[in-house]
Structures are given as structure tokens and as C-alpha cells.
Design a binder for these strands. Sequence first.
DNA 1: CGCTACATACCGACCGGTTGGTATGTCCTC
DNA 2: GAGGACATACCAACCGGTCGGTATGTAGCG
Lengths: 203, 203
Amino acid sequence: MPPSTVDTRTRIMDEAQALILDRGYSATSVGAIVEQADLTKGAFFHHFDAKADLARALVERWAEHDLAHLDAALARSDRLARDPVQRLLVFVGLLEEAWEGLTEPYAGCLFVSYVAEAGLFDEGTHAVIRDTLLRWRTEVHGLLQAAADAGPPSVEVDLEATADLLVVAFEGSFVVSRALGEADLVARQIRQYRTYLEGLFGG
Amino acid sequence: MPPSTVDTRTRIMDEAQALILDRGYSATSVGAIVEQADLTKGAFFHHFDAKADLARALVERWAEHDLAHLDAALARSDRLARDPVQRLLVFVGLLEEAWEGLTEPYAGCLFVSYVAEAGLFDEGTHAVIRDTLLRWRTEVHGLLQAAADAGPPSVEVDLEATADLLVVAFEGSFVVSRALGEADLVARQIRQYRTYLEGLFGG
DNA sequence: CGCTACATACCGACCGGTTGGTATGTCCTC
DNA sequence: GAGGACATACCAACCGGTCGGTATGTAGCG
């Protein structure tokens, strides 16, 4: 296998992502990216047609990992619990677990970076983000509906909004966690969400 | 009142804020700002020492309005309800009310914009955001504590994290609302938060 | 094997345009 | 006529992107 191609492209993407998470897309020049990756502009534009091409590749990779994470938690909670309510709570518990023990670098989210500079990206790039968030809505809503079918929640509640609250709690946590410099904030907020669900469906 | 000075400065800030909310701080050039405000660079640098000076002024104004909003809701809920639990629920209800009926432009938050490009701003600017969020934490935690003292919540819960969840729900809603193009998402999420509190303290 | 033909990976100089910022000038008001 | 409120003109640095070139394959063929 040629040691170069894939490696270099990935390295560019990794360095670019780190820079974008820190200072945003627009402030991340391709000059800075290639310097960080110890390359030249020639190398960059060999692998990407334009800077926007990189942006698209990055968000697609991020969405892919994100959905893989979702599917994994879905599958595991499916295996670990039979009861719909338990399945729901285990699912959220697994997510919480994944964000525990986070200390040093406060979480960043590429979606937040892109949304904050939304005016710079084309429809296709936005669609990647939208589709990913909608997958979360659909899947979580499915879990909630199954739990509600097994036994109605303690109070009447908008199940779609409840599903969205998980994603909202994640994205909001990323923002607030960085703003306050508190790494454990994400996991604590997901735990809050779980407490909410326990109250609704009876833990 | 002199019609010029304050007006021009405010106009610069307004246009700059609108642009930053749309495409971020870095991608908002002072050239674009003065063009939007129908001015020239001379005018801009007459009112601001540097672009960073504008950034600071904007976040300070935003924080001021944000805290005024908080204080108003705090004062009104104080007047409208005597019981600590009712006071808490009315407080959140007022916030929800303020975000209802929002249709056209999906909400943006300057804090989100700044956090997404955190690496570009100095400590002082970050401190403004941090202090503002901490005020929310303190005040909401106070309301929660008072409610808990009047009658313990239905389940044991981390009251500080519960306080943070309100801010997290706001910031997260701003992000997701823009990403999905759903203007009513903010109010629906704040309503979810209220439902959570009702479950904890008994509406 | 040796030769040709072509592809991939990367370099570094360079281009036009834009950036934040400055220096100077002009007009209006007190 | 002094000072504030702008406009005009300009600069050096940097921006995304192009281009000619090179080094290293790699596949086909005799």
C-alpha cells in the first residue's frame, strides 16, 4: 500500500478539524492547515478542489462518526434490555457513560461550528447536518414512543420535543461546557435528561 | 440629543451583529460592516480602535440585554407568585412566553458565535460570557433551592445541573433551531424544561 | 529485463483580491 | 478656530487558488 495518499488526506482533515473547532472555519486558513500538517498548499489542493471541498468532507466524516455512535448505543441498549422503558434508559445511560471521565479538552462539535457560520456553507453541507439531527430525532422518538406504548408517561408530553431535547442538551452542553471551561458538564446534563425520562416513565 | 455619534456607533454595532450572527465573527469584515451601514472605514475606526474593540462592545451589550431579560423575568415571577414552586414555574413560563410566536428568523445567539470561534477572543471577552452564564446558574439555582426547601423534589437531583439545564436548553435550541430551520423549537424546548420541573416539584 | 507511457503525490513561486489598519483631509458645529 | 464626525486614499500582510515542475511509482510491452 502506498503510505502517502490516504494518510496525507486524513492528516489534513485532522489538523483542519482541530483548528476549526478552536477558531472556526473562516479563521482557519489553508495556509495554517498545511503548516500544522507540515505540508504545502500544493499538497492541499491536490487532495481538495477548494476549501469548501474540505468543509464538506469534514462534516460528512463527522456525521458518519456521530451516526455510528448513535447506532452503536441503539444496538447495545437493544441487547441489554428487553423492556421498552429500560431500553430507553439504558440507551441514554450509555451515552452518558461515553461522556464521563472527560477532563482536559472541553468538547467541541463541528455542527456547532458550522451553524455559527451558517452563511458560509452551501445547501448540501447544511443538509448533512440536518439529516444527522433528524436521524437522532427519529430514533429517540421511536424509543420514547415504544416506552409510552408500554405505559403512558406520568404527564402528557410532546414526545417529539422530548426526543429533540436529547440533541439540544448535547449541543447546548458543548457550548456551555466550553464557555465555562467545565469538562464534566456534558455528562451531567445527559444525566439530567435521564432523570427527566425516569420521572416520565418511572425508573 | 445629538443625532450623530451614538446613532452611528449603534448602527455599526447593529449591522455587525446581524452579520456575525449569520456568518460568524471572522468572516464578517469591517468592509462588509460599513457597507451594510452605508458608511466608510474612516467612520468605523473613528468609533472603534480595532475590530476586537467592536467584538468586545457587542458581547457586552448582548450580555447586558440578556441579564436585563433575566432580571425582568425574575422580578415578574416574584410579583406574580408567592409559593416558591409556583414562582419557579412562572419564571420559566415567562421565558417560554418570550420565545413563543417566533417564526421567520431562527434565533441566533452571539455567545454561540463567539464560543464557536473561541480561539480568536481575549480573556476579557470570554469573561463576559462566562460571568453572564454564571449569573443564570446562580439565579435559577436560587429558585430551585427555594422550591426544594419548600418541599423536596420527587427524586434526588443535582440542583446545580438542573439550573444549568435551562441555559443549556437555550443555547442548544439556538443551534438546533437554526440547523433544522424550525423557529418554534426554542419555545418547545423551554416548555420541556418546565414539564421536567413540574415532575420534580409537582405542578 | 529495459523502455515507454502515464498517474499520483507533492513542492513552492506566484496571482489577483481582500484583510485590518493608518494617515490625511474635509465639513459641520459649537 | 477648535474639535468631533466622518470620507478618501492608501498600505503591508494575508487570503484562496493556480501553475509549472519534480520525484516516485506502476502498468504494458518487446
